[in-house]
Simulated assay, not measured.
Amino acid sequence: MDKILVTTDFSSNSKAGLRFAIQLASQHKFELTFFHSYYMANLTSLSNLAFADYERKEADKIQKKLNQFVASVYRDMDVVSINKKCIINSAVLADSNIREYAQENKFSFICISTRGSGKLKKIFGTNTSSLISHSTVPVIAVPQNYRRSEIKSVIYASDLVNLENELKKVIEFTKPLKAKVEILHFNFPAEITTNKNTIDELVKKNSKHNIKLHIENINLAKSLISNIEAVIKQSKPSMMIMFTQQNRSFFDKIFFSSNSANYSFKAKVPLLVFNKI
């Protein structure tokens, strides 16, 4: 069974990530683990033994708070909770704590809410941007205004390089959800022409998975992110998928200067990012 690590800091914004993960689990048998990272420093004159006892009591309170927080989201969504766990884990840095826990426990995805600000100064140092930049486990960034709706369609933004291998991962995710896939590619001036026949054959080969190809010339008056957002506004997908670092030139176009994190903060739909090693 695929497993999703769903992070929360108990804020109302973080409920979006929980709602999206719960929706995923309603369409496919995902095991959900709701995760809270905390840290308590001994800034008092307590002895090590006394502080350890204090930390245990505080950890119990945090665990109960997480259990209640998750239960309230299920209750608000009118969904029965199954295949779920609630875990708290102590570490100084929340982002590395999340990454390490996900990797060590072989999670399929990490799901995290994002607050919706596109300003770079608010992105650097955030858990979302750090996870997108460094996690080997795919990250789902969910905008804070997400409300539960069935996942019916996905836009997969691609440079069409290594398309076959990437498409396998996309289909592996979308097939059990019965969601259609729109492969989105923008042609750039002076870019080597893609062998469209080869691409068409690959799309035809996977036609049973409800896949279509969308290629258009990029509007150079706008950023690539703005071009993508214009397509999203028109197509109204349930979510979007990107791959990072697979091809450096494409990485530069979309993800340079934390633009992947920037997109995740501006996005109107959840974003799934596969970060290849």
Rank of each mutant, 00 (worst) to 15 (best):
I228K: 03
F186N: 01
D78Y: 00
K121V: 08
I88V: 13
T33V: 11
S158N: 05
S264L: 09
N83C: 05
F173D: 04
T128V: 14
I171W: 00
V142K: 01
F20M: 06
K65R: 14
A52P: 03
S11E: 07
I228R: 02
G125T: 07
S108Y: 04
S153T: 14
M242R: 00
G116K: 01
C111W: 02
A52W: 03
L131G: 03
D159T: 02
I132F: 02
K121R: 06
S226C: 09
N145R: 10
F10Y: 12
T126P: 06
A190S: 09
S26E: 14
A25D: 10
F255C: 12
R115T: 15
Q144P: 02
S133E: 13
I155R: 00
A267H: 08
A157S: 10
T33S: 10
F30N: 06
S257L: 11
N13H: 08
T193M: 13
I218N: 00
I140T: 02
F274H: 08
F10Q: 06
N219M: 02
P138A: 03
A179F: 07
K212G: 07
N197F: 06
C86T: 14
L167I: 08
D200Y: 03
A267F: 09
S135V: 10
S96E: 15
T198N: 13
D53W: 01
A52L: 11
E31C: 00
F186I: 07
V269G: 00
E55K: 12
R99S: 13
Q103R: 09
D159C: 01
E164C: 04
V80E: 12
S12H: 11
A71M: 12
C111M: 05
E166P: 01
F34K: 02
N145V: 14
Q27E: 14
I218K: 00
I183L: 13
L272N: 01
N219W: 03
L167V: 08
F274S: 03
G116H: 02
R147K: 15
L32R: 01
H28W: 07
E104N: 11
L131F: 05
S129K: 01
S158W: 04
Y101F: 15
D200Q: 10
A52Y: 10
S158V: 06
N197I: 09
K29V: 12
M242A: 03
K64N: 14
K65Q: 15
E201K: 07
V273G: 01
V273Q: 00
E58C: 01
V70K: 04
Q245L: 12
V80N: 05
D78H: 02
T193P: 11
S149T: 13
N162D: 15
